[in-house]
Amino acid sequence: MNAPDNTLHPMQRIVHTLMATCLAVMATAVFLNVVLRYGFGSSVPASEELSRLLFVWMVFLGAAAAYPAGEHMAFTSLIGLLRHRPALFAVATLVIRLLVLLASVLLGRGAWQQVVVGMDSTSVVLGYPVGLLPLPALLCAVAIGATALWEIAQRKPLDLGHSAEVE
């Protein structure tokens, strides 16, 4: 499930710490509002906006980190059947990676346009530039796209073993 931290790439460790921080701040902000409202009849209006922004960052950072580890949900039963036909398996692997690359390019392009558009608007409560919302999607698309390219160049075999813990 979780590799011990010392075997991780420093970059991954940084991303993990960022994600943990996002989650801790989100939880604290929402919890604080429950306490303030119930106990003191007041609240911090920024809490909702802040926790939603951090949530988006946490998810796209995490999605980028999950890709090289092969932790994204996928239906691999069928392609698993090809494992003993190396040539076919290699072709299927290449097709998947090209499609991932295509998806990254589409997502990255759209996110870039929205970052540019959003830099000119501010959020209602905190007043942060709205471009900060699509920005993690852009970073995520760049990271996944670059990884997919590298995998294609290296002819890295497709990893079928992992499946993330969900539900």
Partner: peptide, 25 residues
């Protein structure tokens, strides 16, 4: 707010919505 950003970026042509959500723009 999502439609507003789409309009600004040219991904959608028209909309009607609250003026309050335009304050940030």
């Amino acid at each position: 707010n999502q439609m507003q950003q789409a309009l600004i970026g040219g991904a959608q042509e028209m909309m009607v919505g609250s003026t309050a959500t335009l304050v940030g723009i």
